[in-house]
Design a protein around this nucleic acid. Sequence first.
RNA 1: GCCAAAGUGGUGGAAUUGGUAGACACGCUGGAUUCAAAAUCCAGUGCAUUCACGUGCGUGAGGGUUCGAGUCCCUCCUUUGGUACCA
Length: 951
Amino acid sequence: MDYNHSAVEKKWKNFWSENQTYKVHNDSHKPKFYVLDMFPYPSGAGLHVGHPLGYIASDIYSRFKRQSGFNVLHPMGFDAFGLPAEQYAIQTGVHPADSTAENLKRYRAQLDNIGFNYDWDRQVITSDPSYYKWTQWIFLQLFGHYYDKKEAKAKPIEELIAHFEQNGLADIQAHHSLETVFTAAEWQAYSAQEKDDILMNFRLAYRKVAYVNWCEALGTVLANDEVKDGLSERGGHPVEKKPMMQWALRITAYAERLLEGLLKLDWSESMKTMQRNWIGKSTGATVFFNVFDHESKIEVFTTRPDTIFGVSFMVLAPEHDLVQQITTEDKRDEVAAYVDAAGKKSDVERMADAKTVSGCFTGAYAIHPFSKENIPIYISDYVLKDYGTGAIMAVPCDDARDKRFAEKFDIDIPIIIDKSAFPNASIGDKVGTMIHSDFLNGLKVKDAIKAAVSKMYDEGIGYRKVNYKLRDANFSRQRYWGEPFPIVNKDGQSKGLPFAELPVELPPLDDFKPTAEGKSPLARLDKWINTVDGERETDTMPGYAGSSWYFFRYMDAKNDEAFASEDALDYWKDVDLYIGGTEHAVGHLMYSRFWTKFLYDIGKVSVQEPFKKLINQGMIQGVIEFLYLAKEKIEGRSRFVCANIAEGEGVEHFSRIPIHIDFVENYGNKDSHINMNGIDSFVNWRPEYSDARFECGNGVYQNGHFEPKDSALDSHLVTSSEVGKMSKRYFNVVNPDVIVEKYGADCFRMYEMFLGPIEQSKPWDTQGIEGVSKFIKRFWSLFYDNGQWIVNETEASKGDLKSLHQTIKKVTKDLHAFSFNTCVSHFMVLVNDLKKSQCHSKHILEPAVRLLAPFAPFMTEELWSSFGNEGSVHHSAFPEFDETYLVEDTVTYPLCVNGKKRVLLDVPNGTSKEAIEKMATEMPELQKWIEGKTVVKVIVVPNKMVNFVVK
RNA sequence: GCCAAAGUGGUGGAAUUGGUAGACACGCUGGAUUCAAAAUCCAGUGCAUUCACGUGCGUGAGGGUUCGAGUCCCUCCUUUGGUACCA
């Protein structure tokens, strides 16, 4: 009898839940270890085989840590607010809470099927009022604090108000967006609303006018990824920018700390680099250029003040405020046309145009601050309005884009850096010696930067400046299905609600469409909106609100007195291991770090960084299969052809129709094709093609009839395959339940790990799952033969002990390195060895079960109980290896001649270098390689190899 | 354009600090078992050449460092992911 996975899995799933095997306690004396999974959004499509990749890895790791003596927190929950549920509600009228609950149930069942060791008592659901009560509370804290730059921390807004009463804006170093100044007397004289407006420029959560993607035709605001090329993705309607009063978070206040914090994190360098680039700190100088014959000055930010004498023109962003003022009469039409064209371009189009240089001369000139020469002012869309000051001083000799621009418009390219000492340096590298640069001549670039800035400062031309790319985060959505703001507005002022009124629950609703002005559907609920204190805010919070702090809630998920108790926060502190995808590189991971730092500042948590170690799992992609459909019908019928035929006729005459992968034979392979059965299924699925013609090399299939060429029996219509996202729209979603049912959860888990390194992306492919399935059966067959328990008490042989301990050593090492795929290989080697030696000894097999437990939790649990053990194998100790079993009697040395392996030599372990060299030199088989040549040198690397260097 | 990662058999992938390239698995070939098949077990399997022993060549391409390079350095090509032409 083979291993019966269905029965065993059912048995132990029940056992685990009845015995609360995975319950985690906060009052343990063991060291803590916190393993966190990515927060899933429960979509209607259910879990696909790509999702569990990271979950399986973290599950294995947390089981390994628990068996190694740690108190392991490994929770799961759901990021349940989101756009798809709301979209579904608009289409079907089903309340998002209902569809979400339905999806949650399905996700939970799918997760349980795979055998994850979550403590479900700690489940967090963001759309649950008992959770979002605390999301709202944190928002109120952000609203009630400002950032003090001197102390580098958030402080209560009341302290700021007290300071304004006493001193006005003087002596304050706060992060703010205010553009005016005021005295204490002026502050005292301001109206309540004026005071409120000023404070909005300081609060860490604040209201401001921001632009949204407004689509008139759909009557709704669209997310960025719903807009393609300036048109809505659905329907292709025009999208315009519309100003709206919205909430934002002042994450920019934390830019420097978010940057510094990266240093201590055990994240991949590429991930840190992405975050650094997003924060985008650059040190340089602000420099002012006077405009010839005008009052106004052009302010630029440059990282290369040393190149000031290389400036031969200036460029303003087309949207720059000065453009209208300084453009000369004769250039007005040309400039207006350019500005107009640039405004219509989408970001995508600007990107595609990266290589083509465009621009327009304004007719105006700036005055060089040192040489006093006139330099022309251009506009071009390679300068962006939102970055820096929206204007640059162009240095064509040491900036690739400026150079291209200068060449196109025939502008001088003054050479001001001698890079002859650095032949490998390319344009823009900060190396070389300054020339033709007045007071900077002879200085190295680095020194010249300092010298230039200090001279600029002395002459009032500019000053040192640190610039960040990071911008404040928009925190509003004009939607229903999100956290309501605990805010009421009255007389143009926003007030936070008192704690006693939290949570502000989402009111019931049956029409989920936005209002005509694009406001959230909540705006229609007059009764809900109007309170004695004012009107409720009708925007809701964005998706990242709930996911920016959920990892703290798991520590004490049911607390109603605080977002988590001090004790729990103090015990668990931070996440020791977070496994998640790179798509969150700058969004979720940046916001979570920001919220954690803020909670630290207000004394609520004891850590500044939430995620100590981060592993980026790769994506499991899907295979997308397409049929070629001729653009031109033949005799009024649709015409599908084989990929080979399409290529012959030219693929431009065809469109590609995604087809369900279940209809395709050998999908994902070069030979992927559909036969007559497949065509029937396809036509059934898409009745509009019921009388279509399907042409392939073998013949033509039409209306259920096959007209073969030669003697072909079946259609062989080759499809075109592509690797891409696993998604409902490509009909290529593979449900893990199907694999689990066929092969068992243990096999599914180990196969996903066996596919390759966890960080690597790869298409889903079941080729090779048989190998893992065979391994599971073979492992089982060491214990059971035809249902008979065949384990005995025989003393373990030396060879078996060596195999076992070698495996323990390798698996332990690879687990520490998160190399799960090689762990699976090591297990296979062990089983192959034990099968060969016909080992059934308890002394080998019992530790082997404990070793395999994290990977195959169901089968090992069954085997563990077969040994007569009472508790769960998952609470047993992870085996430790004993080096004494691993000592080799002999070492095999490859003998190389000039680095090429020629002969092998067995040497007793512990032989001295000299003896090895002597034995090697005397090897008869080696003589033909060294005969007639001079042995220059013999290199002996202990336990590795011997190399003869000959001439 | 910029940033990051990666290119190894027919396929997925192994390979400490530079030290026997291809572990493990799929697939394929042959054999055992079987009336037959499935399943299982055994053997072989980088490419070229050779009856064979063997020999040569081999980690995207080209160069370099080294006794020795998949691994380090330079140039280039390709693929994937990110992106805000970031001054």
